[in-house]
Simulated assay, not measured.
Amino acid sequence: MQTKSYGVTAALGYNAWGVNCGLKKSGHPDLALIYSEVPAVAAGVFTTNKVKAAPVLVSQEHLAGGYARALLINSGNANACTGEEGLKHARMTAITVAKLMQCRPEEVLLASTGVIGVPLPVTPILNTLPTLANLLSTTGGPQAAQAIMTTDTFAKEYAVSLEIGGREIRIGGMCKGSGMIQPQMATMLGVITTDAPLKGTVLSASLRQIVKQTFNRITVDGDTSTNDTVFLMANGRAGGAEITTGPDLERFMEGLYEVCSHLARLIVKDGEGATKFLAIKVKGARTENEAESAARAVANSNLVKTAFFGEDANWGRILAAVGYSGIDFSPEKTEIFLETLPVYAGTGVAFNEQTAKDILQQKEIEVIIDLKQGKEEVTIWTCDLSFDYVKINGSYRT
Rank of each mutant, 00 (worst) to 15 (best):
K212P: 02
E250F: 08
P197W: 01
N74E: 07
G222K: 01
F309S: 05
Q2R: 09
N134E: 14
L341H: 00
E107A: 14
G239E: 08
I336F: 05
N20V: 00
F387K: 06
V118Y: 09
P119T: 04
I169T: 09
I148K: 03
I125R: 07
K99A: 08
S204R: 12
A111K: 01
A274E: 10
F46Q: 10
E311G: 06
G27S: 12
L198K: 06
E84R: 05
A307Y: 10
T93P: 04
V220H: 00
N134L: 09
V349W: 13
Q182A: 11
V230M: 15
T93V: 11
V58A: 15
A78R: 08
E250S: 14
A159W: 01
Q146P: 11
T113F: 08
I243D: 15
K199N: 11
T193N: 15
T201I: 13
K276V: 01
T306R: 13
L132Q: 06
V115E: 15
K281C: 13
I169H: 08
G239C: 13
E290L: 03
N127F: 06
A238Q: 10
A321T: 02
A70D: 10
G316D: 15
S178W: 03
S75E: 10
E272T: 03
V45S: 15
K99G: 11
P130E: 07
A145Y: 00
L23P: 06
V118K: 08
F309W: 07
K357V: 08
T113N: 12
I164N: 10
G246N: 08
V259C: 14
A11D: 07
R167G: 13
C103P: 12
M188G: 10
N20Q: 10
Y257V: 08
T47F: 04
P247C: 12
A297N: 03
S293G: 05
T244V: 11
T82Y: 03
E335K: 08
K99P: 10
M233S: 09
W315R: 02
M233Y: 00
S5P: 09
K52I: 02
A94S: 12
I181G: 09
G7F: 03
L278F: 01
A291D: 04
V367G: 01
G86T: 05
K50I: 05
L319E: 15
A70S: 14
P39I: 01
